[in-house]
Simulated scan of single mutants.
Amino acid sequence: MGKKWTEKDLYFLQKRVGNCSLSAIARQLDRSETAVSLKLKRMGLGNTKHATGLLTGSELAEALNVDRKTIYNWIQFYGLEAISRITRCKRKFHLIDVHSFWNWAKHNQEKIDFSLLEKHALPPEPDWVEEARKTPAGKTIKTYTRWTTKEVELLLKWREDGWSFDEIAKKLNRSRISVERRYARGKSLFDKGTSS
């Protein structure tokens, strides 16, 4: 028969899930990974949102009916706030706070087809979402497209000529944050090239 779970063990599990790997938790509790995994399931802590109050990129993608890569593109290129954590296994996940997501979504409505989002799938759902659901289903959702060498050259030239990020973003049909980030990366690569 296995080791009895104490109140202290259960409290430790609740605090650690979402902050460190399953193997690390098992080691600290002197139990097998299987025993810890089963206990987490019995406690209803298998779902990252229930365990941490945060959503994984996959959970958010599922709720929004988009591909997981779309969420990671939003994080990488469009300023969606996320933190990296190791969850139940050794894999690294991006975790997103629901309130942060809604704040971001309000300013990036063109990227989301709200008609595909079930009501209250991501509570607390702000009031403006209901109106966003009524947007025609045929609206174009912007997806990330790779920067071409020509675009990067134009970006660097226009910045040198004194253009604002907003002006460049409009000209290249990209978001301001995407332009700012690409400029920072392009400039650092350019600076490295000229210093060698």
Rank of each mutant, 00 (worst) to 15 (best):
L29Y: 09
S196L: 15
G138C: 08
A121E: 01
F77H: 15
L54Y: 00
K150Q: 11
K111E: 11
T70H: 03
L116T: 01
K150N: 09
E130V: 05
V98F: 04
A184L: 13
K119V: 15
F101A: 00
I25L: 08
T52W: 01
Y78Q: 09
Q76R: 08
G53Q: 02
T149Y: 15
T194A: 12
K134N: 13
K170E: 09
P123F: 06
W147S: 05
R42H: 06
K111I: 10
V36S: 03
S188L: 09
S32M: 02
E33L: 10
L154E: 14
T145Y: 07
A63C: 10
V66F: 01
L116G: 01
R181M: 11
I75N: 01
T140C: 12
E153T: 09
S23R: 01
T34C: 13
H99A: 11
T149A: 15
T56S: 13
E160A: 14
I141S: 13
E59L: 05
F93H: 11
K49R: 11
E7Q: 05
L156D: 05
T148N: 07
E153S: 12
T56L: 02
F77R: 14
W104S: 00
S37D: 12
M43C: 08
K15D: 08
L116D: 01
Y183A: 04
E125S: 05
K111Q: 13
E81Q: 09
A132P: 06
R88L: 04
L64F: 00
R185Q: 14
R181C: 06
K4W: 15
C20H: 04
F114R: 12
Q109P: 04
K106H: 10
F77C: 12
K142D: 10
K119M: 15
N73L: 07
L64S: 00
P123H: 08
M1P: 13
Q109T: 07
L45W: 03
K15Y: 12
R91L: 10
R31T: 01
C89M: 14
K90Q: 15
M43W: 00
E130P: 04
K142Y: 13
A63L: 01
I25N: 01
D127Q: 07
S37F: 07
W102L: 04
I25S: 00
N47R: 14
D191N: 11
E180L: 14
K69P: 03
S32K: 03
T140E: 11
L117A: 05
K69T: 05
I168Q: 03
F93K: 03
W128L: 07
L38K: 14
K4Q: 15
R185Y: 12
Y72L: 11
R133V: 02
T143M: 12
E151I: 11
S84T: 06
L95S: 03
